[in-house]
Design a protein around this nucleic acid. Structure first.
Lengths: 344, 344
DNA sequence: TGTTTATGCTAAATCGTTATAGCGCGTACG
DNA sequence: CGTACGCGCTATAACGATTTAGCATAAACA
């Protein structure tokens, strides 16, 4: 059950494969193929359901029309959604997507990059793991079209698309202050990922700008990779040590989820005894009662911009660097409420 | 910046490309290449970081070492997780995965199948949309390795891997009865998808087996594709019309989620006023307070079995059909509790 | 009439691999 | 002494497309 090749069409049409190729690639006019012949070929191709062999084409042209998508975890809500839009958008340009998850593990990331090179992908969308700098640099120097996503490497100027982590957290802090919260805590992770640092910085900057205090004892770092139980118990301890606490900001959604559990476990009411706000949206935040206020990433825009930047690179090898920082959106739900101003 | 080819190695080693190919494919012994030459070639290949061009190789061998994964929605919790394991498992066999979402739309599914054919994928993993029978039949007749997932087409005998929908729902019903619930309702969708029917059938079968009644008025079908608002309001109406109702079974997780909202909206307490149980697990069910009892699909096993069946087909063209039905697991949480038996 | 130019098409090389057929040499056999 | 075989390797032809260079033929021009 072999497929129909250009030769089969050529034979049946009584012309050379070259002619068929010209016509099928829309170069009939340019190559001065008569309308008669053109039409005959087009008809035959349709009738035989000719499908160009992308392998042969790729081998000859050096383009596979395939892009590699490296994410932290494709099963994660954020990345799964990005993967979906990326696939849809890429499809519009005739590209297919090969994907892989790094689990934020350097070795896995290296493996993925290698396989994608084998596969001759035309371009890369990468969520870099820690210490992937060297590999990114190599890729950059080989002039492969590439866009980083969700994170960037401060030392290497490259294309990237990400949310404005600083602004998002800044807005979160301002919102809490505006509502009248006064004893505000922050929970983050020990991970050195740049986006976590920026979220931390944005929040503290807003606090400072409004002359609110965020002393070190109001900030808790949960070890990266801690189990749910460990995390929850640490957060509970942290909360217990802060009497009068009225609001908590979590720098990422899984911490926020642990936070919900911790607060409930302590018998406190979310939105009444304590306000919760988290970076990143999540089904759970949306559907929880009360709804959890959060700083949402513009997933669609991120994916669309990633593809746009990549397609730009793919189509014209300008050396211009595209760095897109998209605004985060504060989604107000019932976990934060207007407070009657009381003097502490 | 061209890559290193087999010719480059051949030239530097002073041998023919054929020899290099033999050695690099582990056929040195078989093809009687001397150890001397073998070693020299291996060393050179490592030194030059030779990466075989999969395109050329694929063109020659007719194998791309790529499989196509067609799911309903890659952003959906279930499929995203399957996609993750599928990728990991495929990787172990040297395969990469191309994916796409159908949105349960026939036209999209056709488009995906076509693109994957272009791309010469070696095998297909397909979550069939309604009315995809003809295309599946064609694929089957062309003897392409293929496994259906999550659903099957009753009219066409093919490989498939899925959860035991009937048993899962059966267990759910038995569990509710065992706990002493007496006025039990079921919420499903109007979708004619086979798995939904089986879930419905399993539940009713268990009820009948235990001489419990499930009259038609206790069953609600929500239109497929209804918006969240519509669905929630319909479920609310349904519940309001059933005084004394003490438990509700939802045939799929998004209905269960709507159910949670509906029940809360009505001011009822989950697990106290009414028990909820849903087919399919979800982050929300796990993290909700109270936790929502559900019938979970063995996602890992499904993905692993899918790959195993596919690899079987890929490696040996036996015509044997593999149909794997995996048990569903009842995950008990607080949304269903032991009831003091009261006479209605 | 002889030289250009335009027209409509094709031969052949090429991409990087794999697979088949077989070459030249030395040794063993009858 | 002629032939058969084992050994270690290679030449060459694919796979299916794209692309470059160019070949006839006819029309146009001087």
């Amino acid at each position: 059950m072999k497929g129909i090749s250009i030769k089969d069409i050529a034979k049946q049409a009584g012309v050379s494969p070259t002619t068929v190729s010209f016509v099928l690639n829309g170069k009939a006019k340019e190559k001065r193929i008569s309308d008669q012949v053109s039409k005959k070929i087009l008809k035959l191709a349709a009738k035989l359901k000719y499908k160009p062999n992308q392998l042969a084409r790729g081998l000859r042209t050096g383009k596979t029309k395939t892009i590699g998508l490296i994410v932290e975890d494709i099963a994660n809500h954020f990345f799964a959604n990005v993967a979906k839009i990326v696939e849809e958008e890429a499809d519009k340009f005739g590209y297919k997507v090969l994907y892989g998850s790094t689990e934020d593990n350097l070795t896995k990331a290296r493996g993925l990059l290698e396989v994608l090179e084998y596969r001759q992908v035309d371009g890369y969308i990468i969520t870099p793991t820690p210490n992937l700098d060297k590999e990114i640099e190599v890729l950059k120097n080989s002039r492969k079209p590439m866009v980083l996503m969700d994170r960037y490497l401060p030392q290497i100027p490259t294309n990237y698309v990400m949310v404005n982590n600083f602004q998002g957290s800044y807005d979160a802090a301002e919102y809490l202050l505006e509502l009248g919260y006064q004893k505000i805590a922050l929970v983050t992770t020990t991970s050195e990922q740049i986006q976590m640092k920026e979220r931390f910085n944005g929040f503290t900057a807003a606090m400072k700008a409004h002359r609110a205090s965020l002393p070190r004892k109001m900030c808790k770092k949960i070890p990266f990779g801690a189990s749910k139980e460990e995390a929850v118990s640490q957060i509970m301890e942290f909360i217990k040590g802060l009497p009068g606490l009225d609001a908590i900001f979590f720098t990422t959604n899984y911490l926020g989820i642990y936070g919900i559990e911790s607060v409930k476990e302590l018998g406190m009411k979310i939105g009444e005894d304590v306000a919760l706000i988290s970076f990143d949206d999540h089904d759970l935040f949306r559907l929880h009662t009360p709804g959890i206020t959060c700083v949402a990433q513009p997933i669609h825009d991120i994916a669309r911009n990633v593809i746009q930047v990549l397609m730009n690179e793919l189509n014209q090898h300008n050396n211009q660097i595209n760095q897109v920082v998209l605004p985060a959106t504060l989604i107000k739900r019932e976990s934060c409420r207007k407070r009657a101003k009381t003097v502490a």
